[in-house]
């Protein structure tokens, strides 16, 4: 019975780790929580400034990565293609520069750690603990 409970516990624990994405910002950023609706606004380019009026630097992944597809489906509720086109429209209309695109989570962490106004997301929380210049921001669900 103990073995069964242990296995169940491990499975549930694994699912939680593998499914949740974490929003990360630079450690200098005073933001602690962020409503999920703002997550959408930031990552489609409609919200471009932090509360102190400094420009938000969005970091994202290649369009064909699983992490981006999962994040887009969960928080943006639009296809990656639509999100991408929205960014193209905003950047070509000179509203805001397009997001930095990276391949790996470590690249995202590195960029956010060096840029005070940057925001990104990762899947593997354990990568954050290795770098104190990046912190996780709690997402307030709807």
């Amino acid at each position: 019975m103990k073995k069964v409970l242990l296995i169940l516990f491990l499975i549930v624990g694994y699912c939680e780790v593998s499914q949740a994405q974490s929003i990360i910002v630079n450690a200098q950023n005073s933001t602690i929580t962020i409503p999920s609706k703002f997550v959408k606004d930031i990552f489609i380019g409609n919200m471009t400034r932090w509360k102190n009026n400094s420009l938000i630097e969005v970091v994202d992944y290649n369009a064909n990565t699983e992490l981006r597809t999962e994040f887009t489906a969960k928080y943006i509720e639009m296809s990656v293609m639509r999100v991408y086109k929205n960014w193209i429209r905003l950047s070509l209309s000179a509203e805001v520069a397009p997001p930095k695109i990276f391949h790996t989570q470590q690249e995202v962490i590195d960029f956010v750690s060096k840029n005070a106004n940057a925001i990104g997301y990762i899947k593997d929380r354990q990568l954050i603990s290795k770098d104190s210049s990046v912190k996780e921001v709690k997402i307030l669900e709807k």
């Binding site: 086109k85 193209i88 429209r89 070509l92 209309s93 000179a94």
Partner: peptide, 18 residues
């Protein structure tokens, strides 16, 4: 020198990719 705020398509220099 900016794009004139007029219409849907003139917000980008060229609309064709969007």
């Amino acid at each position: 020198k900016v794009l004139t705020p007029y219409g849907l398509l003139n917000e980008t220099h060229d609309f064709s990719i969007i």
